[in-house]
C-alpha cells in the first residue's frame, strides 16, 4: 500500500498551483495548501482508498478556499500586476505582459463555478473525470462549465484592444 504521506506529497505541487490560481496570491496559496494538507493528514481515515487521492484533496482545498472567501467577502484582495508576473515563467515582452494581465482580469469576471472548473482542468493536473469528482458535479456539468468559461473568456478578450497580443508564441 503506497504511503498516504508520499501520495499526499506528490499532490502538493498541483494543489499549490490551483490554490495560487484561485487566490492569486502566493502566500495565501501557501497557507491554503498547508491547511489542506493538515486537514488531509488529520482526516486520512475518511479517504476511500479505492479512488485517487488528488480529487479528494482538490475538493477539500476548494472547500477551504470557499470558506475563506465567505469570510473575506467584504475585503477584496488586490494583487499588483507586477507581483503576478514576478516569476521566471513570465514573458519579458511588455505586450505579452499586458495580454496576461488582461487574461487575469478576464478570469476574474467569470462566474465562480466556471472559473473553478477551468483553472482546475488547466492547472490541476487532473483528468476530466477527476475534475468532475473534485467539483462534485457530473461529467456533463463539468464539460458545460468548461465550454462556457472558454467561450466567455474569448468574448472578454475579443473586447480588449490588445487582443492580438495573446496570439504571440
Amino acid at each position: 500500500m503506497p504511503d498516504f504521506k508520499d501520495q499526499l506529497q506528490e499532490c502538493l505541487p498541483d494543489l499549490w498551483r490551483y490554490a495560487f490560481a484561485l487566490t492569486r496570491d502566493r502566500h495565501r496559496a501557501d497557507d491554503l495548501v498547508q491547511d489542506c494538507a493538515e486537514r488531509a493528514l488529520l482526516k486520512r481515515h475518511l479517504w476511500q482508498r479505492q479512488g485517487a487521492l488528488k480529487p479528494w484533496l482538490m475538493k477539500m482545498l476548494l472547500n477551504l478556499f470557499r470558506n475563506q472567501l465567505r469570510g473575506q467577502a467584504r475585503r477584496p484582495h488586490l494583487v499588483a500586476i507586477d507581483d503576478m508576473n514576478s516569476n521566471p515563467a513570465s514573458p519579458d515582452n511588455t505586450e505579452q505582459k499586458l495580454a496576461l494581465a488582461q487574461t487575469a482580469s478576464a478570469i476574474q469576471k467569470l462566474p465562480d463555478d466556471q472559473r473553478e472548473a477551468l483553472l482546475l482542468v488547466v492547472l490541476g493536473g487532473v483528468s476530466y473525470k477527476q475534475a468532475a469528482e473534485s467539483l462534485d458535479v457530473p461529467m456533463g456539468t463539468l464539460m458545460s462549465r468548461l465550454g462556457r468559461a472558454r467561450a466567455r473568456l474569448r468574448e472578454l478578450m475579443a473586447d480588449k484592444p490588445m487582443n492580438n497580443a495573446k496570439r504571440a508564441p
Binding site: Q9, L12, P13, M84, P88, P91, T103, L119, R154
Partner: peptide
C-alpha cells in the same frame, strides 16, 4: 488561454513540505 493561465500561475518553484 491555457498558455496564458500556465504563465500566470506557474508551478511552485520550491518543494512544499508537509
Amino acid at each position: 488561454q491555457n498558455d496564458a493561465l500556465r504563465s500566470l500561475f506557474p508551478a511552485p518553484d520550491q518543494a512544499i513540505p508537509l
